[in-house]
Computed example of a mutant assay.
Amino acid sequence: MKTKVLVYGANGYTGELITRFAKDFGIEPIVAGRTEATVVEVAHRYNLPYHVFSLDDTEALVNALKHVAVVIHAAGPFHYTAKQMVEACIATGTHYIDINGDTSVFEFIKRYDAKAKAANVMLLPGSGFDVVPTDCLAYSLKEQMPDATHIEIAFLPRGGGGVSHGTATTMASKAGEGGCVRENGSIKRTPLGHKGKWISVNGKKIFAMSIPWGDISTAYTSTAIPNIITYTAMKPSVYRVLKFQFLFNWLLRMGWIRNIIQNKINKRSTGPSDEQRKNGKTYVWAQVSNAKGETKTAAIQTNDGYTVTYEAALIIARKILNGYCKPGYQTPAACYGASLIFELSGTKELQ
């Protein structure tokens, strides 16, 4: 029986957090990535074994996974890296989880459902802040209103120090591509921020705008609710500017513009400090409605996104090691229930 966990991308900001705290969850991971100097540095810092290989080296990738029970894939952008890792996991009988939040990547990995079932492998992307809290809230509301036809979901960060280098890189690679919603079961392209609204949560009114969060894919898989819009907090002044982004999306998609954005990202710190993470919180809000016009609303507070990510990924990896998993493509709440989010520290229900 395979019992090892490999963290690929352990030398990145979020991968390092997963590696650093793994022993608190009873896991001693194998450190892995493609850049030898930083992989070795992380491995030596935590006295862990390591592998150095590129995902494009199929032989090295398969050899690294042969004796591994679970991969925590933390090396994005996932629209460049998911295919290689998913196929290697299926080939070696290794369960796959990742910290992806890209709707298109969820839809892509879902195509491997039949192959994963045949190999008795679970594929569970979105095992971090993208999309565990939102998926659990959506699943809970669907249980309360089985005939729901519409759901709106929002995550509203309150501090936390901003995004990591990897997240920023993913965002840069998607610059100018707009947003999306789900209408009548199908994903529909929309301008980024095509809709804005004020949301009342925890005694505060927070403005939010629509974005293409991963729940456009995962909430549909978890709940079968056919109409989904996702939001994040945004200053109204910024939202008003973004309403005109469609006029220059063609420019943002130009390679040289994306390179300029990426160069600026490369000059920043890799991610928020421990103190910034400690002080960060996120409100997660959702509302469902049915054909009768009835509604149900729920909200929770979680720790900052990066703390949620490393805790959720490690809790799910531990469940898999204990034999608690399902073959094929899965979503967090559909596999582990709406209560999964309450297994993480700092989660509480809001009125």
Rank of each mutant, 00 (worst) to 15 (best):
Val105Asp: 11
Leu17Met: 13
Leu141Arg: 00
Lys188Ala: 00
Glu183Asn: 12
Lys267Trp: 06
Ala116Thr: 06
Val71Phe: 10
Met1Thr: 15
Phe155Arg: 03
Ala116Ile: 02
Lys174Trp: 15
Phe342Gly: 14
Gly271Val: 08
Ser173Lys: 15
Gly126Trp: 05
Phe207Ala: 06
Gly160Leu: 01
His194Tyr: 15
Pro226Lys: 08
Arg158Cys: 11
Cys136Trp: 06
Asn249Arg: 06
Pro157Lys: 04
Gln330Phe: 09
Ala168Phe: 15
Leu156Arg: 03
Lys281Gln: 06
Gly179Leu: 14
Asp215Leu: 11
Pro77Gln: 04
Arg158Gln: 15
Tyr8Leu: 00
Gly185Cys: 11
Arg111Pro: 05
Tyr220His: 15
Phe108Ala: 03
Gln276Leu: 06
Lys278Cys: 07
Ala208Thr: 08
Met85Glu: 04
Pro29Val: 02
Ala75Tyr: 01
Ser289Lys: 08
Lys117Ile: 02
Ala60Pro: 12
Thr94Pro: 02
Gly185Asp: 08
Asn202Trp: 01
Ala119Trp: 02
Ala118His: 05
Pro157Asn: 08
Thr230Asp: 14
Thr169Glu: 09
Ile99Gln: 14
Phe129Gly: 01
Asn202Glu: 12
Thr103Cys: 08
Met209Pro: 07
Lys281Met: 02
Lys195Asp: 12
Ile151Trp: 06
Arg34Cys: 08
Arg240Gly: 12
Ile18Trp: 00
